[in-house]
Amino acid sequence: MSTDTSTESGGPASDHGGPTTTGGHGPTDHQATGAAGHEEHHGLSDLQYVQVAAILAVITGLEVSLTYIDIGAVFLPALLVLMVIKFFTVVLYFMHLKFDNRIFTVLFYMGLFLAVFVYVVALFTFQFFSS
């Protein structure tokens, strides 16, 4: 049964906290920890969220300043790297994907990587035919 395989392979429910607990809820899914509420809050503190936002603001400032500085061939890769850092910082910390159940990660990254793959291939195809 598929359900068994998830537990056997140390699947989502057991990834972050050992065996499942009462009610069979994944221990890291803090929304599903039960009627007891949200005492078990996985994530950052408010101060840490502010620090993450400050880092994001600094990266944004860096991105904008790069457009006014001539850094040659490094410009494009540098911008893309900064964009990816910002993207995953928001996804991992603000969207709690780092602390949440791995199933959510799979669901999101499935769509993300499918989109990136499909459209990169499509763009290369157009480039190929146009040249």
Binding site: T3, S6, P12, A13, T20, G23, G24, H25, G26, D29, Q31, A32, T33, G34, A35, N101, I103, F104, L107
Partner: peptide, 14 residues
């Protein structure tokens, strides 16, 4: 608690 799927996770969140 919110409705949960067979994985024990919230259906809404999933």
């Amino acid at each position: 608690p919110p409705l949960t799927s067979t994985t024990g996770l919230s259906n809404n969140k999933m």
